[in-house]
Structure formats: structure tokens, C-alpha cells
Design a protein around this nucleic acid. Structure first.
Lengths: 196, 196
DNA sequence: GCTTAATGCAACGATTCGTCGCATCAGATG
DNA sequence: CATCTGATGCGACGAATCGTTGCATTAAGC
């Protein structure tokens, strides 16, 4: 009983379309994204895209889940300052990558969409889990006060970088990442992220 | 020699259209913005909008400059912690206001446009000037190390709030603002924002 | 090889977009 | 108040885009 055909051409088409979606996002942004342009770039007929994904947002959701699933291991440099710096630098790597930028911008533009919001929540939940390991280690070492909230640290590390990318359009460099890491370290040591 | 007529009906039309632009942004976002919908909401014929503003981005630029020009005075509570808290809370006020949210989101979505980028730069330049007064006072009081960069403080204060609004879609409340202020205070005291 | 998903293809109605010519309205000026 | 003219209203249009549909073709799975 053959109902779906996940392999071969189907998978190839899917990969081509999702890659084309990202490429289109890089070139034209979310505002310039269209089913037809994606189909053309993927070398696929637009009817295929409509039949498989239905709407533009559906396509975007699939592309986001496809490319945002790469989980990175928690850094472990030995002290909290080093770990935070590594965290900030991996965020920087994503935000300076052309595809990463395009995906982040698309997420923001389509954040109102339920499924996109779900992807975003999942990403940050996983990020928080990773940060929790780092924070817990630091607390055990006596570097940070106990009760320090991993959620707050997780958001604080990336915030200045996202701010530069999305709001102020200022350059994203390693100095910015390192400063962010240092700021979070100072705030965390001062107990700013301890839950009340 | 009458060439332009800035008063009366012209001004009324302009105000109606710009207000309608913001209302449309609140309701449908930048993606749902169209010359026709704005014209209809403003009670104006679409040809008028096309003739006066030409393109959608031109309209947006005019709306942004019209509504983003409200400069707020620098807080002066007596100590750096209080000043930073006030700064964060006024940012919070903008980001929790429906129109403020809509305008910020629009700026992000249209940030690639030259004129929009110009408006954004002007806004943050003014914000930096305001923060500089606060920072200078704090340095004179001995609360912050000399050399603390107003630019960095200016961005750092808002970053966690913009992050919540644009990226993580987490709630924006006074606790978030106060935490941001406290984090910036701790980082600034630690010399994180001192130029190298 | 046979069956049938999956895709290609072309055409279509529907909608939206931006422009145009002309009539009308209402500041500005004397 | 009368006149001039810039600004707007109005409707229509060609163009472009959108999403769908029916049918032919390809290729995955058995």
C-alpha cells in the first residue's frame, strides 16, 4: 500500500525548494518572497509548490524548521566568562551569516504566524536548556549566585546583537559579541538575573 | 505666485493619510500595508496618495518621521540607577503602545530602505545624545568609570526589550525594563562600556 | 514491468497594482 | 466677492500577479 513517496524525487524537490526559499530570502527578503519566484529558482513548477505547501507561510515554516534545527553543543571553557563569550560568538556567527540573517529577519517579519511562533519558541527553549548547563556549572563553581535564571541569561547574551542587526543596523563584529558577553557576566555576578 | 498650498485641505489630507498609515500598520502590519487600504481608511482617493507619496516606502518614511519626532527629555533622578530605570521604562512605554509597536516593526521590515535607515539613525543619534547627559553626570558623581560610552549604554538599555518584542515574543512588563536597567548599571559599573 | 504518486505544463478567472484623463472642489489672491 | 489654479475625486484602463484546474508526463515503490 503505497500512499506517500518520501524518497528520491520528492525529497530532492523538497530540498531544492527549501534551499531556494532561503536564497530568495537572502536576495529579496520576506517582502519579496513569492511562490513563483521560489519555484523558478528551485527549477520546479509553481503548481508543485502550491500543492505541497499551500501558502507562503507554510513554505516559510517548513524552511525555518528545516534550517533552524541545527543544535549546537554547550561550550565548556572552564569559567563562566569564557562560556559566555563562546555563546555570544556563536550567536554572532549566525547573525553575520547571510542565510542566518535572512532567516532571522523572516522570523521577525512572520512572527505573528502561529507556526512560526512555535518554531521560535522551540528554538529559544532549546537555547535556554543549553545555557542552563553553563549557568549551573558556574553556580557550582561559585562564579554566579545561585538562583540565576538561565532564561534571562539566554536572552541577554543575544539581545545586543539582535538589536544591532534588526534595529540600529550597526556593524556586527567580535567586539560587539565580547562586550555583550562581558556585560552579561557582570550583570549575572551582580545578581541581576536571580529570580526574586 | 501660488505654487504650493501647505495649509487647509492639504494639511488635513496629509494628517489623515499618515494617521491611517499608522492605523493600518497596527491592524495589518507592514506586510498588509497598501496604498489603497490606506487611502480608503483615510477617506481619500487612492490617486491622491499615489500623487503625493509615489510609493509605499515613501509614505512610510513620511509617517515615521511624522510620528518618531517626539523627543523626550533626559531623566534626572539623582543617581545612575534611577536614571537608567527611567530610560528603560520610557522605552517600555513605546514598545507596549500599539502604535509604537507597529512603527518599530515597520522600521525593522523596511530597514533596508535608505530613507527609513536615515530616520532610524537620526532617532538613535538623538537617543545617544540624551544618554550622554546621564552618563556624564554619573561619571562626575563617581558612579561610573570615566570613558563609559554613551552609545553602548544607549543600545544596551533597550536591547532586551526590543529582543522580547521582535525576537522571542515574550511579555513586555516593568519587571523586564527594571531588570534591563539593573543589568546595564552593573555592566557599566564594571567598566564593560569603557572604550578601549 | 505495473501501478499510481508526484510533477510538468498551459491556460484560466480573479484580484491587485499603478496610471491616466477629466470633472470638481477649495485655498489663495486681488 | 470673483477669479485662478493647485489639489482632489472619480472612473476606467492595461499590466502584472495570484492561486486554481484539467490533463499529460515522469518516476518512485512494489
Amino acid at each position: 500500500m503505497t500512499q506517500t513517496r518520501p524518497g528520491g524525487r520528492t525529497a530532492r524537490t523538497r530540498a531544492a525548494v527549501l534551499q531556494a526559499t532561503v536564497d530568495e530570502l537572502v536576495e529579496s527578503g520576506y517582502a519579496g518572497l513569492s511562490m513563483e519566484s521560489v519555484a523558478h529558482r528551485a527549477g520546479v513548477h509553481k503548481a508543485t509548490v502550491y500543492r505541497r505547501w499551500g501558502t507562503l507561510d507554510g513554505l516559510l515554516v517548513d524552511a525555518l524548521t528545516f534550517f533552524a534545527d541545527q543544535s549546537v553543543p554547550a561550550p565548556d571553557t572552564g569559567d563562566i566568562d569564557g562560556d559566555l563569550r563562546e555563546l555570544a560568538r556563536s550567536a554572532l556567527a549566525v547573525l553575520t551569516d547571510r542565510a542566518g540573517q535572512a532567516l532571522v529577519r523572516a522570523m521577525v517579519s512572520a512572527g505573528h504566524h502561529d507556526q512560526v511562533a512555535q518554531v521560535i519558541r522551540a528554538f529559544w527553549a532549546e537555547h535556554t536548556t543549553m545555557v542552563a548547563k553553563i549557568v549551573n556549572r558556574a553556580v557550582r563553581r561559585g562564579e554566579l549566585p545561585s538562583g540565576t535564571q538561565p532564561t534571562d541569561v539566554s536572552r541577554a547574551i543575544g539581545a545586543p546583537l539582535y538589536m544591532r542587526l534588526l534595529v540600529t543596523a550597526e556593524p556586527l563584529d567580535s567586539a560587539a559579541a565580547d562586550q555583550s558577553a562581558a556585560a552579561v557576566a557582570a550583570a549575572a555576578r551582580a545578581g541581576v538575573f536571580v529570580s526574586t
